[in-house]
Design a protein around this nucleic acid. Structure first.
Lengths: 358, 358
DNA sequence: GCGGACTGGTGCAACGATGCACCGCATGCT
DNA sequence: AGCATGCGGTGCATCGTTGCACCAGTCCGC
């Protein structure tokens, strides 16, 4: 038996496998790492039998220490409590699993300091590839590690001028998405629209607003006449539940106007759900008195009452792309050039939008 | 400079710090591990300066290889895409972070094989503590590793007779929760209730049903008269979005009855949302014609229209407990006894429940 | 019968951090 | 003088895996 005294400790080592199979550890290692071109089939067989019998699993820490490689990637999101990020986490993990990679989960809670600390920790863990969902316009807080070789994929954030050269950016085309949403509303006959969002602090929020404006212009509506809510939102309006609270407050504001909008474009689905709630509080019926469009197409969009018209982000594909980009850079270890992937959004029409009543 | 040729590789070692500070690696290690009772303040200072200057972070792989310890715990959930599990992931990660631990995320997608493979992988990674959210009544598929020393916390699953002795179970008291929900409905005057759920395959589903029955009995209603939907649900009805689909189908069934129920207890919130949708499809108004109660209190319960009356699970506290239990067992490395923690659920009354119309 | 190639493996020195055993020196006690 | 004790550190073997360098044996060609 093993000499280790602790209850049934079962860390089987390559050495034990080697002994069991009557070969040297090197040979076992060779087999494990596919260097088996010059190995007798019977030797191979013996080793495999020994591995099965002992239930051997290579120790990752030792392997990583030796090779410097590893099969863990980091995922930094504002909060997995938010269904949108939850969906990303799920699909990313799924893509990673298919290639034998693992995902280390980090919730930044939208705190830049936490975001940065996490990336430091990941680096210390030997994680060299991270999918970062940052709300911050600048990535300078992680630049030192990128210089040291950290591979970074920015998700839900288009690339910016100051970004590191090696950065990969993955995002839906926010402007187009918003424009599709807006166009859908104007096509239905709406002329009095409102855009609901917190401060346009992040890149993609700005883009979405840009798409909204473009959509209006296309329909011959003066963007200056369009509404923005909630007003006086220069402050920190981040958060998840908060997004819906914000939508609700915005809706309350809009309802109180002399001439309320007949259609509302919300910055995302959570916000849109809040808007719906706020409208209902104000005695209006969504999908009848007022139309509402969201963004993201989270699971609940199709569950809500009324079901929510929204702009879908192809999450599965985007997550898969994030992983494969990361993986390619991790493997080749060559100084690959950064790039930007913009996915095409899709308008999903449901019940929350309809022609204006008047 | 460093001899490593790869672009600006920045893996600073303890040796470099030692050289920089003019001491031996052992001394640096001593400081790092709090063995600094016999160290000149100035020596300590020199080392700290060197660490800062070089931006040194201990290599976890090396540390783990040497000590056998590590600060990563595993989390296996059916799917983080589901807001309920997303919330758990978030809170668990938060509790772990506070103590310097990390969370490795695994989506089992409710596949027992995947669940087991993941736990194997985690073990190979040197992860000795796992929070497992299994839908399976039996844990035998992970028993071998538990015997080898794996610390397991079962979440959202009360302990069972066949469970390993060291297992910690954390769950809300499902029976009480369901009973509270049912009692709330009978207090409102409802006499004709239905219970909506997929197959009562898991432990907590059975418990919830038991609470429902208990609630009925308490109100002097014969449980035999209560309805169950959807009918003929012996099969696999797992999944997330599926839960809502199931609720919707069940609602359709119930609406079609000669004497439809006036109140519905759903197995969880996602299911309840589906029920609401199905009722709406059938022309009934939730919170007026029919009352609906959910379970979990996911974020969307308070956003839905109408807002959902539900039974809240104290997720933050439960997640914190899961982590601290795990941590205690990981640190002491003593053969701690297993235990079962049952949290008190709380009924959250919102708009989806009201007295019956008739 | 000697160089060269091939075959099926093995030896060994790392990777970076750890922590026990131990060191030389000074001081105290009897 | 003789021994213990405290101080501020250091030396070294070790964790499990890896992969280059190397080896002994056989076979071939000239």
């Amino acid at each position: 038996m093993r000499k280790n005294a602790r209850v049934g400790m079962g860390e089987v080592t390559i050495q034990q496998v080697a002994t069991e199979a009557g070969v040297s550890p090197s040979t076992v290692s060779n087999l494990l790492n596919g260097r088996n071109h010059r190995m007798l089939p019977e030797t191979r067989q013996r080793i495999e039998t020994a591995i099965d019998k002992l239930g051997y699993r290579p120790n990752r820490a030792a392997r990583q220490l030796r090779t410097g490689r590893n099969t863990t990637i980091g995922l930094v999101v504002p909060s997995v409590g938010n269904p949108f990020w939850g969906a990303l986490a799920r699909h990313l993990e799924s893509a990673a699993l298919a290639e034998g990679y693992h995902v280390l989960l980090c919730n930044s809670e939208r705190d830049p300091r936490r975001e940065r600390d996490y990336i430091d920790e990941l680096w210390a863990d030997g994680v060299h590839g991270v999918v970062l969902c940052s709300s911050l316009p600048s990535l300078e807080h992680v630049l030192p590690l990128v210089d040291r070789g950290l591979q970074l994929v920015a998700f839900d954030r288009t690339s910016q001028a100051g970004d590191p050269a090696s950065l990969v950016s993955i995002s839906v085309d926010n402007a187009i998405g918003s424009q599709l949403a807006t166009q859908h509303l104007t096509d239905l006959g709406h002329r009095r629209l409102a855009f609901v969002s917190g401060a346009l602090a992040s890149v993609n929020r700005k883009e979405r607003y840009r798409g909204f404006v473009a959509g209006l212009e296309q329909a011959g509506i003066d963007p200056a006449e369009a509404l923005r809510a909630p007003t006086g939102t220069g402050a920190d309006d981040f958060g998840d539940v908060e997004a819906s609270e914000l939508g609700r407050a915005a809706a309350a504001e809009l309802v109180a106007l002399d001439e309320p909008p007949t259609a509302i474009v919300a910055i995302n689905d959570m916000c849109a759900l809040g808007v719906c709630r706020g409208l209902r509080d104000g005695g209006l019926e969504v999908g009848k008195d007022v139309s509402v469009v969201g963004f993201d197409d989270i699971v609940l969009a199709d569950l809500y009452a009324p079901t929510l018209t929204t702009v879908r982000q192809p999450m599965r594909e985007m997550a898969a792309a994030a992983f494969s980009q990361l993986r390619a850079r991790l493997d080749d270890s060559g100084p690959t050039q950064g790039q930007s992937l913009l996915f095409r959004p899709e308008l999903i029409v449901r019940e929350s939008t309809a022609p204006p009543v008047a």
